[in-house]
Design a protein around this nucleic acid. Structure first.
Length: 413
RNA sequence: GGGGAGAUUCCCGAGUGGUCAAAGGGGGCAGACUGUAAAUCUGUUGGCUUACGCCUUCGAAGGUCCGAAUCCUUCUCUCCCCA
């Protein structure tokens, strides 16, 4: 098999391919232009979007040409695949703003060069589409009978599917056709939920252009306990540091289940396959080193090495053991508190709420009552305790710990 | 158009006049055990409060009653069946 595909294969990227052998031959005989599309319907990409982009980078490094397609046009409609209800309609301005942010994040990760790796936006050909022409030229190639047999629509047949959503597949197929015509794009990659749409595009190109194209899909990554990867209590793991701090981002990876480690190393880092396997094969406490490595690598890819170092330092400081003597606490999430307020003493409960470790005083009270609250490694079990300057550590800070994993630093100023 | 069922606290789901901040499960949080893992066990899970207690919550708005998630009226939405 073609080496680029081989790489994807052994790293666990490949879920389905329309013609693996044919694609392999095509890739062997020269650079293949491929694309992945994504609708900018939210303010930031999240980790769930990233598997195709990791694959994209692997393929690009193997010498193939990548097109990052922004669904600026399709986002106006909404893809019904895998959804149980109609997508909320958002304004054009919002879509464009989202697309700009998405591209910024992708550029940081992929480093677009406008030559072998560039972006397109389907609003360029969808926005002013002529309805009649579209029906004549494109619509006639689609069989409703066939479309209705797709799982994606079946599910929605139960709950209701609007006509515009039903059209989504035509638009996505049309995208592929446009990219084929404009850029000679012959391969579409994406999450496995895109399978039906991808195949439809390939069909369309065959009928209209008589050309053979390919589709390749990746698994929708789940954690070993069956949840969608990247979902946290607070929501998705976003790439935007303002929405998910690099520290939280790092901690997510640092805390993955043992069973997920190898898969995640292979999918979300560019470490050599052999090394990934070696890291994941470690036993007991040593596995933690491997998880830290995973966390550092992914954080570095998304937020840069500097942020990754900081997050690592913060994690070490927070979990390095009692006292954390000499550890660099400065990277732990923190905020300042005027010394004057501290002088008078502040209630533990207020303090934990202020630090964002508890969402209400009741919750903070529970935390204290259950013995999960610690300030500078001193357990606080009196909910009425008043915290004043005498609690400060040598650096003039209060290191709050809620349970084992959540930490926050309040610095007296 | 006709008939039926339903909307409950983060989710699922009990409750059908006071003992209901509301069973049970899930999820979350905390504790034990550990490796910042998994599994397991325990506790906890609307807000304010030291507490007594108070406030907000059972689709929405009114009403009955000493008292309503529970009864009545209107409205909104969802599902099912018949046409």
């Amino acid at each position: 098999m073609n080496s680029a595909l081989q790489t994807l294969q052994e790293r666990g990227f490949i879920q389905q391919c329309t013609d693996l052998e044919g694609l392999s031959k095509a890739m062997d005989s020269g650079p293949v232009t491929f694309y992945e599309g994504c609708d900018p319907t939210g303010p930031s990409l999240h980790i769930g979007h990233m598997v195709p982009y990791f694959a994209m980078r692997h393929l690009h490094e193997a010498g193939h040409n990548a097109i990052v397609l922004m669904g600026g046009g399709t986002a106006r409609i909404g893809d019904p695949s895998g959804k149980s209800s109609m997508r909320q309609i958002i304004s054009y301005e919002e879509i464009d703003a989202n697309a700009k942010r998405f591209l910024g994040q992708i550029d940081r990760f992929l480093k677009l060069d406008d030559r072998t790796m560039y972006s397109e936006n389907n609003k360029n050909w969808l926005a002013d589409l002529n309805y009649i022409d579209f029906l004549r030229d494109i619509g006639r190639h689609f069989s409703v009978n066939h479309m209705l047999s797709f799982e994606a629509y079946k599910m929605r047949m139960e709950t209701g599917l609007t006509f515009i959503e039903f059209n989504y597949q035509l638009l996505q197929s049309y995208d592929f056709l446009q990219l084929y015509k404009r850029h000679g794009c012959r391969l579409q990659i994406g999450g496995n939920d895109q399978w039906g749409n991808i195949v439809a595009g390939i069909e369309l190109i065959r009928r209209v252009e008589g050309a053979e194209c390919f589709g390749l899909t990746f698994p929708l990554v789940m954690t070993s306990d069956g949840k969608k990867m990247g979902k946290t209590e607070k929501g998705a793991l976003f790439l935007d540091p303002a929405m998910t701090s690099p520290y939280d981002f790092f901690q997510y990876w640092r805390n993955v289940a043992d069973a997920d480690l190898e898969r995640f190393l292979l999918l979300f880092t560019f470490l050599p396959t052999a090394l990934c396997k070696e890291l994941a094969a470690k036993k007991d406490a040593e596995l933690n080193e491997s998880k830290a490595r995973l966390a550092w690598e992914v954080t570095s890819l998304i937020h840069g090495a500097e942020e990754a170092d900081r997050a690592l330092a913060a994690a070490k400081a927070a979990f390095g053991g009692p006292g954390g003597s000499g550890a660099d606490m400065s990277q732990v999430p923190s905020r300042e508190l005027p010394r004057s307020e501290l002088a008078a003493g502040i209630g533990v409960l207020e303090l934990f709420v202020l630090a964002g470790l508890s969402s209400s005083k009741s919750e903070a009270r529970r935390l204290v009552q259950q013995g999960g609250a610690t300030i500078n490694d001193r357990k606080v079990d009196d909910e009425k305790a008043s915290i004043d300057a005498t609690w400060l550590d040598s650096e003039g800070a209060l290191f709050l710990r809620a349970g084992k994993k959540r930490v926050f630093r309040v610095v007296a100023k």
